[in-house]
């Protein structure tokens, strides 16, 4: 609303100025360019340059130093036949699929219940309580879950023994069959802070009158959920899903800390393979090619997700 009131101070000036030639206008704005010099230079050097370097070097064999020669699309062909990469992609798809559902549904239901509380004081405290795990450094989440899955003295196995289910104790992240499930449940009951707050913000903006008139029409909790709350927070839900997808595709610290892709390469993901190619095997060209594939995939997924939710919103 405020934005409508504001007109830039230089609107009238710029209309007058647009008649003067370009070099004059550029010269007049010299202080503005100077003010932007530092950020523009930083982005050019530390963001744009590496991004283009990755595109370019994905066509080269490169050890990060002197060894540097053109191989065309060979890295991309190699990816097609690379068994590790195939496992990594399969892992990533199922992992992202699972995490997107979990990281959206869990915060949604928590937020839904918190917003529904009549006691404002309690709903404030529940927000604080569920945002609290944020103070634990991210790496500690992984280290704590590594302890939970520890085969000898892990919380999960000790818990199973405590309730008399010894036969189900397991080397959760040491077994190729269970490792991806174990990793999918890392941080499980803890809500993802950002997604939780985004969805909470969406639910809080639904006007009270909408809920009241729905109640008068006899809508119960579930009807209200499916016909009011979910449709009216569609934008926030979409945003939370996209964010989870982007985070999960490019962040591999979870895998690096918990298993380093093992046992074997059963918990490999593309981003971790990129890291290992570059920093263990000095294959910077191959690493760049994996990065390019991930970049294209993320771009495509975001566009598809936005399209689908736009269609859904119009219908």
């Amino acid at each position: 609303m405020l934005r409508r009131l504001s007109t830039s101070p230089s609107v009238s000036i710029s209309q007058r100025e647009s008649q003067s030639p370009l070099p004059t206008r550029v010269w007049r704005a010299k202080w503005l360019y100077l003010a932007l010099l530092i950020p523009v230079a930083m982005l050019l050097i530390f963001e744009w340059l590496p991004a283009f370097s990755a595109l370019y070097n994905s066509l080269y064999i490169w050890n990060g130093g002197k060894v540097h020669f053109y191989v065309g699309l060979e890295h991309y062909e190699r990816m097609l036949s690379d068994r590790t990469f195939r496992v990594a992609i399969t892992n990533l798809i199922s992992f992202v699929f699972f995490r997107v559902i979990m990281q959206t549904a869990l915060p949604f239901f928590a937020a839904e219940m918190i917003v529904n509380l009549r006691s404002a004081r309690w709903s404030y405290w529940w927000k604080i309580i569920f945002v609290f795990p944020m103070v634990v450094p991210t790496i500690l989440n992984y280290l704590i879950w590594r302890f939970i899955y520890n085969p000898q003295v892990g919380l999960l196995n000790e818990g199973l023994e405590l309730i008399g289910l010894e036969q189900y104790t397991h080397a959760w992240i040491g077994d190729p069959n269970t490792v991806m499930w174990a990793l999918a449940f890392v941080r499980f009951p803890w809500l993802p802070t950002l997604q939780f707050l985004i969805i909470l913000g969406g639910l809080q903006t639904i006007p009270q009158e909408v809920h009241e008139s729905a109640a008068i029409d006899g809508a119960g909790f579930w009807r209200r959920l499916f016909y009011i709350d979910i449709p009216m927070t569609k934008r926030q839900i979409t945003l939370a899903m996209i964010l989870t997808m982007l985070f999960m595709t490019q962040r591999f610290d979870l895998f690096l800390v918990m298993t380093d892709g093992g046992p074997g390469y059963s918990s490999m993901v593309p981003a971790l393979q990129l890291y290992q190619s570059a920093f263990h095997f000095l294959e910077f060209g191959y690493a760049s090619a994996i990065g390019v594939v991930l970049f294209v995939a993320m771009l495509a997924l975001t566009v598809i997700n936005l399209r689908v939710s736009a269609i859904g919103a119009n219908a």
Binding site: I45, F46, E47, L49, P50, A51, S53, A54, N57, G64, L246, T249, Q250, R251, F252, A271, L274, Y275, A278, F279, F284, A287, S288, G291, V292, L294, F295, M298, L299, T302
Partner: peptide, 14 residues
């Protein structure tokens, strides 16, 4: 839209 993982290796070299 440019993910950090794309720029990781070339940025290290830089």
């Amino acid at each position: 839209m440019v993910p950090g993982v794309l720029t990781l290796a070339p940025r290290f070299v830089l």
